[in-house]
Design a protein around this nucleic acid. Structure first.
Lengths: 116, 116
DNA sequence: TAGTTCGATATTTCCGGAAATATGGAAAAA
DNA sequence: TTTTTCCATATTTCCGGAAATATCGAACTA
């Protein structure tokens, strides 16, 4: 991932409502959530939420698809993967010695990270 | 890492100069770099860089220590670790099925991630 | 009806000039 | 020699203008 897109993604996530929405969409994979449902869930006006969704979409982190009258948004996990890869490269690539303890302490799904 | 601090960190990194500086400091671990050297390297006025360093420090991503008349800044790898953990938790914790392919494709130091 | 776009306002962020603060070296004074 | 004074360097703080962002009512669209 190039720096420019990484900055877009970081900025998109650096806002309370957007981070909440994004987390909800990741958790809702692969089904997705309608924009209106998100607006209700987080008590945000529809137009404000629309603007936030637009920022997330512009960063490539989510994608909307019309489903009848409503529009279902889904998280783009591939983009998340690229973003995390970019950030890890900054640390590990820039300073390999820091990589070991860094990855060791990441507690997420260690058994899947090491498919023996 | 709590959400508030994660947002601070994401916002701190979502800016070209700050991301550049942060990357340089990660690469310069554990020695660190003086503020003035960073200003020269990235051709940014001292006061502007000082403001950026302040944002990074407030987010806990870097830390400055006086060394004589200059101030040496260092990256806080522990905080980076927390931030990456937070982001991974959003994906893996929120949707464990997405975790496997996500971590599999992270190319950083795979041999260290899986210390057989 | 569900969402988006437009337009206006409030707030925040970015930037750099000017001045203030901190440190230490070197010369001058006691 | 010790202390003070002065000066140069390093960085931060203060300030305001310009640009970007956040928010929401109202109109528009699918």
């Amino acid at each position: 991932m190039e720096k420019k897109r990484a900055i877009l993604a970081l900025a998109a996530l650096a806002q309370t409502t957007r981070l909440d929405v994004f987390r909800a969409l990741v958790a809702a994979e692969p089904t997705g959530v309608a924009a209106g449902d998100l607006a209700r869930r987080f008590a945000v006006p529809a137009n404000t939420l629309s603007a936030h969704l637009n920022v997330l979409a512009h960063a490539g982190l989510v994608k909307g698809e019309r489903k009848g009258r409503s529009i279902t948004y889904r998280a783009e996990l591939a983009q998340v993967r690229l973003l995390l890869g970019f950030m890890l490269k900054d640390c590990c690539g820039g300073n390999p010695d820091a990589c070991g303890p860094l990855l060791d302490q990441i507690v997420c799904c260690p058994e899947k990270a090491c498919p023996s």
